[in-house]
Design a protein around this nucleic acid. Structure first.
Lengths: 240, 240
DNA sequence: CAAGCAAAAAGTGTCGACATTATTAGAAAT
DNA sequence: ATTTCTAATAATGTCGACACTTTTTGCTTG
């Protein structure tokens, strides 16, 4: 299957990361090292290396002698993350406007055309639209000549955003508007207008954040019986 | 000495982080697990957990079956980091202007007064000025009501900046100007002018970055015989 | 019957050892 | 003497076991 030369630790790390994002390991749930090690067919030592890395990415929280728990994501934290993503996205666009090659911009446009096609194909709500959204941002991050920005985003921020999207089944509520915003961003990049590209991307992300906040207000209004400790409601039944 | 309850892995992690920043473990040097484990008096398994975390912070680079090397920091990477720090610092200030309490702002002012005193005491060039610089930024990061910003910066970016400062013995070339800029930033925060605070902090960091770039141009001009693979020159004699 | 204490169970922190892969050292050959 | 191949050495990946800490269980006691 996968490269047998890739260390077990790395494979398990990736699998665990995916499991946390998908919610197979629910937020706030306790990690039992012996149990997990047996489940993945590896030794505890090997597992612990993966856990260490996951903690460093803020996907786990470990307390000495008490073990690890999956990170819980509150709306407040999600907002914090989006604020950071906003300025990093702006920076990325600004740099992309300065450094991206014309062919890279063409690729970007092609991505948008695909996105539009699959939208008009009517799969607006489901489909891989979140993936396309990420593809778009990735392409810009690739062309901005500052690989550190992507590194920072992949160091935990993106994972937690995916965590929210997956577990809350939250895709954009306004795909056509989003597509239009994407086009304008590419326009600005093509015109090498760094300042405008920065502004448009920031606004794009800010809008997404506000949409999430509004959506959450609604959800909270509907079932106001529970606290806002975690965005998700499923782990409520578990002991703490 | 230190809390005996703190796991050995964590202690060693911190020590290794410090050793890398100080340059005791030179950039690009190979990490020998048996050697390091013996040096710190721990087992390899315990060490490897610390190494995993250090890699996640981008202080080490590991290749499967080949081992780990200390990260090398090129000027280009440092510039990349400063670009990120610029927007994050701006965000932090903008939020601080909105959310900091008056007493927190007082603390900030007190910090600047201390800074000025130690400057006028004539210890301008040495002393703990870099620490004070960090104190200032930390205080703002503390008051911005977005802990994630600090988390991101501490996830590798700050460490690499410290790495540069320590090993290049680079403190600000213009301490009085920097102090003045700090005061203006605090003024903007006190006046709750988020936009101005953002702008001033960004400019402050951008100036620091340009200063580093200029300084590096000089250094390069003086000894132009070597490539720009790493900012430091000491690890040149080691085998690669 | 509830509260508190003691013993047992489970879990984490740490270690040493073995297998496999990379590196080095040395001998043979051109 | 340089190169190449091979054997020996070292390093990494992985595992199982032991010590200590935390949690659970069950019993005693008020």
């Amino acid at each position: 299957m996968s490269q047998s030369s890739l260390p077990l630790t790395d494979q398990v790390f990736e699998q665990l990361e995916a499991a946390i994002i998908k919610g197979d390991l629910p937020q706030g749930s306790k990690i039992s090292e012996p149990e997990l090690a047996k489940a993945y067919g590896i030794s505890r030592g090997t597992l612990r290396e993966a856990l260490s890395r996951l903690e460093e990415r803020h996907l786990l929280l470990r307390s000495p002698n008490l073990g690890a728990r999956v990170t819980t994501l509150s709306l407040e934290e999600l907002v914090n993350i989006y604020q950071i993503r906003e300025v990093l996205g702006g920076l990325s666009c600004s740099l992309a406007a300065q450094h991206m090659t014309d062919t890279e911009i063409q690729t970007l446009r092609a991505l948008l055309d695909e996105q539009e096609k699959s939208l008009e194909a009517g799969q607006g709500l489901f489909c891989n639209q979140p993936n396309r959204e990420f593809d778009f941002h990735y392409q810009i991050l690739q062309g901005n000549r500052n690989p550190k920005v992507l590194t920072v985003l992949e160091g935990g921020l993106y994972q937690q955003i995916r965590m929210y999207r997956y577990q809350f089944s939250a895709s954009s509520q306004r795909p056509y508007q989003a597509l239009k915003e994407h086009r304008r961003i590419v326009d600005a990049i093509e015109e090498r207008d760094a300042e405008l590209a920065d502004l448009l991307m920031r606004r794009h992300i800010r809008t997404a954040r506000e949409s999430i906040e509004a959506q959450h207000q609604n959800a909270m209004a509907q079932n106001k019986q529970r606290d806002s400790q975690s965005i998700l409601s499923r782990e409520a039944t578990e002991k703490v």
